[in-house]
Simulated scan of single mutants.
Amino acid sequence: MPHRSNAYEDDGLDDLPSPQPVHYAEQSLLGALLLDPHRLADIGALEADQFSNHAHGTLFHAMRTMPPPDPEHHRSDPAWLNTVLDAALPHARGLTASYLHTLIQICPAPKHAPTYAQMIRADHARRMLLMHAEHLAQTSTDVTLPNRAAATLAQADKLGQFLETLSGQFSPHPGSLPRTPLPQTPAGHSSEEALDEERLLLATAAAHPEELKEMRWLQPEDITHPLHAALWQCLTSLVHRGAPVDPVTVLWEAQHRGILTEGVTASDLIALVSTPTGSPEYWGERVLQRALLTRAFDVATRITTYAQAPANTPHQLITGSRRALADLTALRTRWQHSTTTPPAAPRAPRRPAVSRAGPPPRATSTGARALR
C-alpha cells in the first residue's frame, strides 16, 4: 500500500506504554480485516464502542460502513484501504496509512479474527461491569438523592440486567468462580446519626413492644453497634415468649445473655431503653435503610474488585457478580416488606400519632450517649 503523507503521522498508536493484552487483540483483528475484509462476516456482533482504543474503534466503524471490495481486486489495489482511512480520519486524526500497514504486518493469523473479536468483547464486558459497579457504589453513598434507597435498588437492577445480557454472550466453563482475593472488610464504624437512631429504636421498642410482632423484617445484623444488636435480640426474644417488656425485664434478659460487663452497667442499659421518642417502625425503617445502603456499597466493592482483575474470565465475572448481588436480595426483600406492609386495623391511640414520612423529635439520655 503506498505511503500517504499526514501531519499526524507520529500517532503513537503502535508505541503505547505498557499496552494491555486487549490492545494487541484489537490490532490483530483490524489487521486481519484490512487484509481480508470478507472476514467481517465471520466475527459476530461487534461494535466500535467496544474497542478500548478510540482510533481502533473509529477504524473498525469505517470498515463496517464502507462497501467491501472485490477480494481479487483488493489483493493488488489499496483503494479500499485508502477509502477506509479517509472515512476514519475526520474522527481519529492520529491515524495514518503507515499505521494501517503496520496493523496488517503484525496480525499473526488472519483466520483467528473471530477469536480476536471475542477477546475484545470480553474486555469490553469487564470494563462495563466495572462501570455498573462504580455507579452502584456512587448511588448508595449520594446523600443528595431524595430517595437514595430506591435509586440504589434501581441501579442494582441495571447491574443485574447487564449480567443477564452477558450470560447469553459467554459460555460457562469449569472453574467459574473468581479467584481474586477480596479486600478485607474494615472494622465496622457507626456514625453518630446511626447510633442515635438505634438508641431511639430500642427505647421506643421497649415502650411499645407489641409493634415488634410486625417488625420481623428487621434483624440484629442490620444494627451497626454490637450492644444495640444484642439488646434488640433481648427485646424480640421477650416478645416472642410473650413475656412482659419494660426497661427492667430487658435488663434482666440482658444479664442472662451476658451483656452486662465492666463497660456496660445496669444503669447504662436502663437509661438506654427508657427514653422513647416516636415510633419503632419509623426508627426500624431508618436502621434497615442504612443497612441496605451499606450492603449495596459492599456488593459494589466486591464486584469492582472482580472487574479490576483482568485474570477473571467473563464467565467468572458473571458468576461472582451474581453471587454478590444475591447477598443484597434477602435484605432488599425485607426492606420492601417494611415499606409496603399494609396499615394495621385502627386502634385506640396510646400516644400522639407520628408520621413515618419524617423523623419525630429526637431525645437521647445522658446515660444512653455514654454507650458508644
Rank of each mutant, 00 (worst) to 15 (best):
A113P: 01
P114S: 07
T115W: 13
T115Y: 13
T115C: 08
A117T: 06
Q118I: 06
Q118A: 15
I120N: 08
I120D: 07
I120Y: 07
A122W: 01
A122P: 01
A125K: 07
A125R: 07
R126C: 06
R126Y: 06
R127G: 04
R127N: 08
L129C: 01
L130W: 08
L130C: 11
L130Y: 06
M131C: 08
H132S: 02
A133P: 04
L136N: 05
L136E: 07
A137S: 11
T139C: 11
D142S: 09
D142A: 12
D142P: 03
L145M: 08
N147S: 13
N147Y: 13
N147T: 13
A149K: 04
A149F: 05
T152P: 05
Q155I: 05
A156G: 11
L159Q: 06
F162E: 11
T165G: 15
T165M: 14
T165A: 13
Q169F: 03
S171T: 15
H173D: 07
H173Q: 10
P174G: 05
P174V: 04
P174F: 03
L177M: 06
T180E: 00
P181K: 01
L182A: 01
L182Q: 00
P183R: 01
P183W: 00
P183C: 02
Q184L: 13
T185V: 13
P186Y: 02
P186M: 03
P186D: 06
A187P: 05
G188P: 09
S190W: 15
S190D: 12
S191Q: 09
S191N: 08
E192F: 11
D196L: 15
E197L: 11
E197V: 12
E198R: 09
E198I: 09
R199T: 04
L200A: 04
